[in-house]
Design a binder for these strands. Sequence first.
DNA 1: AACGCGGGGAC
DNA 2: GTCCCAGCGTT
Length: 345
Amino acid sequence: MKKKNKYTDFLNIGLKLLKWYDLNARDLPWRKTKNPYHIWVCEIVLQQTRVEQGKNHYLNFVERFPTVESLSSAEIDEVLLYWKGLGYYSRAINLHKAAQQVMEDFGGTFPDSFSEILKLKGVGKYTAAAVSSICFEEKVPAIDGNFYRVLSRVFADDFDVSSPKAYAYFYELALLIMPEENPGNFNQAIMDLGSEICKPKNPQCEICPIQENCLAYETGKVLEFPVKSKKVKAVDLKLHYYYIMYEDKFLIKQRDDSFIWKKLYDFPESISQELENFVVEEKTVYHKLTHKNLEISISKVILQDKTSFEKYAQKHQLQITDYENSHQKSFPKPLENYLKKTFEN
DNA sequence: AACGCGGGGAC
DNA sequence: GTCCCAGCGTT
């Protein structure tokens, strides 16, 4: 009997993954629902974010905003409060805008196809594919980091995944192995395989359901894939803040939606001459972001006079708050840490 | 095509 | 320290 070429038996790979998923799917909260609004929120939360990091944020978010209508009518500050600590804050801003988009452009009904979902702010091809396949059984591969890794290994393909053309390229590869039925499960199977088995480091090839279909495994080159050319360089950046206080109150402002920490709250970044004499100390904290090394110096300014404190706030359009109240706002991580340290002494 | 955008976990 | 994560928007 002639042996079938295992590397060209593409569809079999997809079927194996579906079978594997049936038995090994992770038990995750969003897998109990096909509510497109919830799946959408989940997908946005999990962009560039590990499941363990995003899980609680997802649960809290859909508990507070259970429907697209409830999200659309919320204040952006509260939406950001529920996003606190997740990073990439434009995701929350776009999520909020897109909820209003659903109310206005889609009559309050969440769109039910890839091309319509794609119109939502903050939704790209990956997210539109994930939601439409999971909730509406649309056969479209959700090409994310897991997909790049799994496919480039299975086919031992050195196509540069950091190239803008990678999406289209791997999309075609994905269609080769994607079964007609259960596209949502297929996409989630790739995600689970990528995060549990076909990991960037320490891949668990011994227990991989498609080990015998994997060209990289057979040639002992699993760790050579995926190929990624783009290099990220961290830049050093200095920020200076003024922590202006009177008794237990202090002054904050809201950031704009450019640069880092969009729409989050922080402290004034400058002071007028008259306050220079009231600076009592300066602390420096360091904070590492993915592409930035931040050096943040914070000068403490203590005012003794209530009236001048309030007048200063009004003149420079700063909000007066206290520690208790500041919990209703979303602050960047390093500033949250600073506040915590300041008030827990 | 290249870059900006957070925070955290694994190694 | 490095890499990467259920990516997207802007230029």
